[in-house]
């Protein structure tokens, strides 16, 4: 049975009256057992969606429902217990003076007692592979390490949903890989719902479903394979598809049969193998 995890019902939002609409009549549903990616160019409204989910912003029109609770002023603290967020800038979300203190911050806010806190910090730092950095200060960590700490901070409060709001945008490729690896690992271990917001299409191959945003509207809702097939249109809205998808599309153009849009090298190699053996 599919339980609704996040639902947007005709949501519109703007930062000020008379200002331009950032989101226009956005509706979608994310079931609890799906990993969903929201993609879009800079300024497409994708980050606003994240902020509406945990009540950092409120919809001007329509309704946002998280795990059955409509997000309002009264319910935000309830919602925030269930939704953990990792933001874009690694520096601007690190509150503590050391790694341990930072992970503790969310627990302290919830009045968790000290002995439980220590176990939670230990476990979550272990899960993201940062246990050896417990006493490190933030300015001595790389961006990727800071983001892993941010993930640990989220895990420590054992939420049901994790939202990555362009959490890899400011990282180098190594940091980006670390984060995606860490996230997918903890997601599977702890059975969390994951919502990834990004403009990097390499990050969406793991998602069950992709919501493509353009100019404040839902432009497409589809599987990663379906998304990758629409190369031209995606480029028109400022996005780009991964190398494998591009190559597969080029092969398609020269009549090499591709039975299904490949997501990674291995799938494309398989397609080519089939082609090669059916001469």
């Amino acid at each position: 049975m599919k339980k609704e995890c996040i639902e947007f019902r005709n949501v519109s939002f703007r930062y000020s009256e008379e200002g331009p609409w950032v989101l226009k009549n956005v509706s979608f549903r994310i079931p609890a057992d799906e990993g969903v990616a929201i993609i879009g160019h800079n300024g497409s409204g994708k980050s606003t969606i994240a902020k509406l989910i945990n009540g950092l912003l409120f919809a001007d029109e329509g309704e946002v429902v998280v795990l059955g609770t409509p997000v309002t002023e009264e319910t935000i603290w309830e919602v925030r217990k269930k939704v953990g967020m990792v933001f874009q800038n690694p520096d601007n979300q690190f509150v503590g003076t050391t790694v341990r203190d930072d992970v503790a911050f969310g627990l302290e806010n919830r009045g968790v007692d000290r002995s439980q806190m220590i176990t939670a910090i230990d476990n979550s730092l272990r899960a993201v592979g940062m246990i050896d950095y417990m006493l490190h200060e933030p300015h001595r960590l790389s961006g990727g390490q800071k983001q892993r700490v941010a993930i640990a901070s989220v895990l420590a409060i054992s939420p049901q949903i994790i939202i990555l709001d362009e959490a890899t945008a400011m990282l180098d490729p190594k940091g980006r890989k670390e984060i995606m690896h860490t996230v997918n690992e903890v997601k599977d271990q702890q059975g969390l719902s994951l919502l990834t917001i990004t403009h990097d299409l390499n990050e969406i191959t793991q998602a069950d479903r992709v919501i493509v945003m353009s100019k404040g509207e839902v432009w497409l809702e589809a599987t990663p394979r379906e998304v990758f097939a629409r190369e031209k249109e995606l480029q028109e809205i400022g996005l780009d598809i991964p190398f494998v998808a591009k190559l597969a599309n080029e092969l398609g153009k020269v009549d090499v049969p591709i039975s299904q849009q490949p997501l990674n090298h291995e799938e494309l190699l398989e397609e080519l193998w089939t082609y090669h053996s059916n001469k």
Binding site: V254, L272, K279
Partner: peptide
Amino acid sequence: TISELGIQLKEHLKGD
């Protein structure tokens, strides 16, 4: 380029 590579692959892997 990627499209040149597509053509190359087609030629190389056709089997003949």
